[in-house]
């Protein structure tokens, strides 16, 4: 173990003395020690995605994605088929609170403003929408869409049955569909979430360009750190 600076130890000890009462109080609220509260093996009641990528029965490249009827933040019901003359769809699972989702909001707006006129609109879906969570409620979605002036639809997967079909496991998670709703690219928007100015590879833009030029999309599957999608 790395040795701490003595000063740090002193500060640490001092602060631990000063906060002992607080820590003890917190401990009482904690879970019972040694797993008295035995859950089923594998944590079947976990509110988060517990399946591995192998077990997730989401779409693979080339699968035809399902259309849906989901409530948009303007109160209307939206389906992919509502977009006339679409050449494809940038379907993105995102949410209000995840910092990675937030870091990409402006880039999603830019993507839509660039590519919707070319036939590739952004379709944002919140897989985490829940009236039990004030930060991810439908009203919170409406508020966020208004604050950021989203030019694209922002849909609530209220029944939580669309994101599992796609296989969305984190936010943001992009599924680029072609005109026939065939999945052409799955993954992240670009290679630098935190710093747009340091992006080297724009995966989604490259995929659209390849699609437009009838070329193979390479890569057509990428991964990124993101917030887990909360499955009920």
């Amino acid at each position: 173990m790395k040795k701490c600076n003595l000063t740090f130890i002193a500060i640490l000890i001092l602060s631990s003395v000063l906060t002992t009462a607080h820590i003890n109080a917190q401990d009482r609220k904690g879970p019972p020690p040694n797993g008295e509260r035995k859950g089923p093996p594998g944590g079947g009641h976990s509110p988060v995605q517990t399946k591995t990528l192998e077990e997730i029965e989401g779409y693979k490249i080339g699968d035809v994605a399902t259309d849906f009827e989901l409530k948009n933040v303007d109160g209307s019901t939206f389906s992919l088929s509502d977009i006339k003359d679409a050449k494809g769809y940038i379907v993105v699972f995102t949410c209000n609170e995840c910092p990675f989702a937030k870091m990409y909001e402006d880039r999603l707006i830019a993507l839509h403003n660039t590519y919707a006129p070319q036939g590739y609109p952004v379709v944002a879906i919140n897989p985490n929408v829940s009236e039990d969570n004030e930060k991810e409620s439908f009203a919170a979605m409406q508020k966020r869409a208004k604050e950021k002036d989203f030019p694209f639809v922002y849909l609530a997967d209220e029944e939580h049955n669309i994101f599992p079909k796609y296989g969305a496991v984190r936010t943001p998670h992009v599924f680029l569909l072609d005109q026939e709703k065939k999945v052409q690219y799955i993954g992240t928007i670009d290679d630098n979430a935190r710093s747009p100015e340091n992006v080297k590879v724009k995966y989604v833009e490259n995929a659209i360009a390849a699609l437009e030029n009838g070329k193979n999309i390479e890569p057509n599957f990428t991964k990124a750190i993101g917030c887990p999608v909360r499955a009920r």
């Binding site: 797993g35 859950g39 944590g43």
Partner: peptide
């Protein structure tokens, strides 16, 4: 590897 939330110590 566990892409998974551990619910308790026993698990």
């Amino acid at each position: 590897f566990y892409e998974h939330t551990f619910e308790n110590i026993q698990e």
